[in-house]
């Protein structure tokens, strides 16, 4: 069973020069798991996760012990926002990408998600053009509906 059949095609794509404020608004305002950074030809060049955005807004050096010493973190976060204002998507995105191909199977996709602890993985065609993404929910939905025959219960 190829993942092309169940992949999510409604993706959030942004250009590499998208500014930081817009990125924050996109991640805060939509249900998107990832923002995909693509070039003019639609080829995938990077991925920005909610975690990446959080990493830019909340100091990554904080430990759980230390976090409980901060009574009000709003000022720290505002400072981060000001410091990051100059960043663009290409400065925030992850560049080392794990991608899937449309003809990969759901078993393969699930193993790759599991091994790298990813929430979702992008799917690119032979030219590197982003065609969709897939997460555990998509696979589960497919398993329940098409393999186990439970369409009525969904």
């Amino acid at each position: 069973m190829h993942i092309a059949l169940m992949m999510n095609k409604e993706l959030t794509r942004v250009a590499p020069d998208t500014d930081f404020a817009s990125l924050l608004a996109i991640h805060a305002g939509t249900d998107t798991r990832h923002t995909y950074v693509v070039d003019a030809a639609g080829r995938l060049v990077g991925v920005i996760t909610n975690l990446d955005m959080m990493g830019k807004m909340i100091p990554s050096y904080l430990t759980s012990t230390l976090a409980s010493s901060i009574s009000d973190g709003a000022e720290l976060i505002q400072k981060r926002f000001a410091e990051n204002a100059h960043l663009t998507a290409s400065g925030v995105m992850q560049r080392e990408l794990v991608t899937l191909q449309p003809e990969d199977t759901i078993i393969e996709a699930n193993v790759r998600l599991h091994e790298g602890r990813f929430n979702a993985l992008p799917i690119v065609d032979a030219q590197g053009v982003l065609v969709g993404d897939i997460g555990r929910k998509d696979i589960l939905k497919h398993i329940a509906k098409d393999i186990c025959g439970l369409p009525g219960m969904l």
Binding site: P59, Y61, L62, L66, S69, L76, K79
Partner: peptide, 13 residues
Amino acid sequence: LAPVTLLIADELE
């Protein structure tokens, strides 16, 4: 100690 130092420097700007 380094994370505490980073936090304190952040707070003191």
